[in-house]
Design a protein around this nucleic acid. Structure first.
Lengths: 341, 341
DNA sequence: TTTGCTTTTGGTATCGATAACATATCCCGA
DNA sequence: TCGGGATATGTTATCGATACCAAAAGCAAA
């Protein structure tokens, strides 16, 4: 059916074909308004035959609602963030909202630009990853007049709402775990810039935790520019084994680098955890599948997304409670001890 | 600066504050139009101080351009598709276009719904993953009046343009590789439904390739509902080892399941490739990092994205050549032999 | 048949930016 | 000094759907 893909059809075309007013067609496409069921079906049918597709851009302008929730993440190619977005998106889709996703490549200047682009699309709310942003980005978010949720972090000075956890605190947990196992010479493999602010927070957390135990925190291996890949993790492990062979354990900034490190050990015949223990972060699937399984920290990425979605829906629907103050939801991360430690 | 987040500012507010017409403000925000540099800067400054953010929804309606390219992928949590989207998105961002991403969860009915939702947003073009779609989805795409690109496949009856490769053909390549190594008892681990159509095509390709070599293709292990995870790959390998211990090689539907299979072997003390060879698909990073490295097929995900982007930009900009016929770009996948075979 | 209410349908202005056209301003050479 | 083309700014109508208000149609009870 449907004509050739000529000029796009509008409600007017449908209205004429159905011998009703445009307004009636409009009603036939909304569920809550009053049209007789007969006309609605007739109009729907005619619209379908004409190949009419509803035009949201017009509706968005008129109603001043886009049903978008904007989301920025550092990278699309990261299972942790993907899980968060997935959970967020699932929950929002149930409420008829769509996620408008953009990624910053771990670059704050890029993030600022993205935020501006996203706000131009007039999202109903915006979710950003991390708690550090450029001044202009912060200002734009603050002035946007929509709910702002920072995730994957516990910012000292939140812009709006927060669903996250302290990355530094997770490293205290991990160092405690290793010290309890009797280890004192503990290294850290991470990025050598602060591009990944959460990774940098974890590095700082490692240092603080070591100092709290009265241990030296000089075994820092820079694995490259974030994000650190498996391959970079492997290379960094090589350097660690070469330069500080007496290291008893190494904490990697993520499970991916941890797995790279583990593979490097296997390649060299270094026994894990016999010769050296390895820990990661993120509870990626690989940590529980590889042999031996990797001790890690589960930051509950899906929970972050689900909680952010719930919060947003509450804020948007709770017409009365608009004045509700900024909420901080702290996510209960979990240390998952496994075979590498 | 900026006032309290009161009602959103419009160009009118800026115009009044700057004592110019709305039109002049509009011009100050486009780069190609004629405004004196002095006024432009003055207006920009005032707009910034007011906390004004350009409203795309209005511009979209008036100009009938959204600068969106819609993209559907089966899952966001898949490094292959993430790479394609990343490359696509990078290239399009350079041309001022944004990607509107949606994922179908390997479900054709869901995909149909997504396509409708996406088309309502009036994208300039749409990129879908795979060459199989519901009838209604095909009809909507055909009537959309915008460039349609199917990827990651070579559909028999394309809707519009194609950037992909034959999933079945890759399995012929892989079986040939294993047979050349002297193996004849070759198994396949994949999904047990056709939800992942590309995975199903690979399974069919394996069967056809085996038959072409005069070999039995009965060693089919169903690992679960697609997508097959590492864990499911491991479980499937366990069943394969238990039930057909004389198997010489196994092809897995993806590197993730292949890695799971490899880990299961290591856990059981089965030597790879000594006792059994393992092959995957996708050239995920893990295939080149784990020990031993996994033989795989590189479908060049980033190339798919980049080529799709190029094609779209050509189609949209080539004002003259609108009548350009449907293009099919075949991607040159590559078999990467490694240590597991 | 008429009244009074509900249900269904129609007319008009509008959301905010911009294309198209009109007008004002400027600068330079004749 | 003035004409004429380039440059800078203003005015009006418009994109397509919908809020708001008005009116018509349907229906039950009087």
């Amino acid at each position: 059916m449907g004509d050739k893909p000529s000029g796009a059809k509008t409600m007017k075309d449908v209205a004429e074909a159905a011998n009703v007013s445009v307004m009636t067609v409009s009603r036939a496409f909304k569920s809550d308004t009053s049209v007789s069921e007969a006309t609605r079906l007739r109009i729907r049918k005619i619209a379908d035959d004409l190949g009419y597709v509803f035009d949201s851009t017009a509706a968005n302008l008129r109603t001043q609602k886009t049903n978008f929730v904007a989301v920025t993440i550092p990278s699309i190619n990261n299972a942790n963030f993907a899980d968060t977005v997935d959970a967020l998106s699932d929950r929002l889709a149930g409420a008829g909202m769509q996620v408008l996703l953009a990624y910053s490549g771990y670059d704050m200047a890029k993030e600022e630009e993205l935020i501006e682009q996203l706000l131009r699309r007039r999202p109903e709310a915006i979710v950003v990853t991390g708690g550090r942003h450029s001044d202009r980005a912060r200002r734009m978010l603050r002035n946007a007049g929509i709910p702002v949720v920072e995730t994957w972090d516990l910012p000292a000075d939140p812009i709006g709402h927060v669903v996250g956890f302290s990355n530094a605190a997770t490293m205290h947990g991990m160092v405690d775990h290793l010290v309890a196992k009797g280890m004192t010479r503990i290294a850290f493999i991470g990025g050598d810039t602060d591009g990944d602010t959460r990774g940098a927070d974890r590095r700082r957390g490692y240092i603080a935790a070591m100092q709290r135990h009265g241990l030296a925190a000089h075994r820092l291996i820079g694995a490259g520019k974030p994000p650190i890949s498996m391959r970079e993790g492997a290379a960094a492990m090589g350097r660690l084994l070469d330069t500080m062979p007496d290291t008893q354990a190494v904490i990697c900034v993520s499970d991916l680098s941890a797995f790279g490190a583990l593979s490097e050990c296997q390649r060299r015949g270094v026994n894990v955890p016999g010769d050296i223990a390895i820990a990661g972060f993120g509870a990626y699937e690989i940590a529980g599948v590889c042999h031996p399984t990797i001790t890690t920290i589960d930051p509950k990425p899906r929970l972050i997304g689900a909680q952010a979605a719930e919060l947003i829906l509450e804020l948007l629907n709770g017409a009365g409670g608009e004045t509700r103050g900024p909420t901080t939801i702290e996510i209960d991360w979990q240390l998952k001890a496994a075979e590498t430690t």
